[in-house]
């Protein structure tokens, strides 16, 4: 998720810059104060307060006393307790800095932090929403996958059942066809046998009748024809 600067963010940066400026000023003030309390200044003050007259008087006791005073100028400052003016300037700068920071930087920082918190919260909420959505999609995908697997299993089962049924049907049909072929073949054999017997019988009959015809035709002379006609007349009459 990308972050875009907001008005609150810019105010926060401005407060930080202002605090830095105030800090720089306090440092510079402190520097000035410290400069006014240098060794040279101390020595000059002692000379102005009568050092020159003491030196001019030649009073050794006075000069020794003046040396001690001068030596006091070059003594090292207190490493713990600063000078009073430094405390005043530094305290003022600190107070100003604190006020400025309390006035501008802290609210801006609070706003920035709040905005960041809100943004992070929103990001977390969005991430949670996305996670929930992803979980939903995942669950849906898993459901669909399971459904697809179930469907695939059902299709495979159906195909297997269909194949089994077709196998049984084809087997039954093949057996039926074989039985039909056998029956038909047996029928054809019987028919061929009957036809052969019939043909043979017909042939024998034809030969016998042909022989009879030849015998009859040879014997059917005029007298035989007359006898046949007379017999016919007698049969009709009877």
């Amino acid at each position: 998720m990308s972050y875009t600067p907001t008005r609150i963010g810019r105010a926060s940066r401005m407060a930080i810059v202002a605090s830095l400026l105030v800090a720089a000023m306090s440092v510079s003030f402190t520097g000035v104060a410290h400069a006014s309390e240098s060794i040279g200044g101390c020595l000059a003050e002692h000379f102005e307060e009568g050092g020159e007259e003491i030196l001019a008087s030649g009073d050794e006791e006075a000069i020794k006393e003046f040396d001690k005073e001068l030596e006091s100028c070059i003594e090292a400052p207190n490493p713990i307790l600063p000078e009073l003016d430094e405390i005043i300037y530094g305290g003022a700068a600190f107070v100003i800095l604190m006020v400025a920071m309390w006035k501008w930087a802290v609210p801006a920082m609070k706003q920035g932090m709040q905005a960041r918190t809100d943004r992070i919260r929103a990001d977390l909420a969005a991430a949670e929403s996305a996670r929930l959505e992803a979980d939903g999609m995942k669950a849906e995908y898993a459901s669909k996958l399971a459904e697809a697997r179930t469907e695939a299993g059902r299709i495979v089962d159906d195909a297997r059942q269909t194949a089994d049924a077709m196998k049984v049907e084809l087997q039954a049909k093949a057996e039926s066809d074989i039985a039909d072929l056998r029956t038909r073949a047996a029928g054809e054999v019987e028919a061929a046998k009957a036809q052969a017997v019939s043909d043979l019988r017909g042939e024998v009959a034809s030969l016998a009748v042909g022989a009879a015809e030849q015998v009859i035709e040879k014997n059917l002379d005029a007298d035989a024809q007359i006898d046949l006609i007379e017999n016919y007349i007698n049969q009709v009459r009877s």
Partner: peptide
């Protein structure tokens, strides 16, 4: 008819022919 007689009277046929006997 080879021999004998075939008589047809209307639709009635009296067949006494040698052909029929054969």
């Amino acid at each position: 008819i080879k021999g004998g007689v075939i008589a047809q009277i209307g639709d009635e046929v009296i067949d006494g022919s040698v052909r029929r006997k054969l």
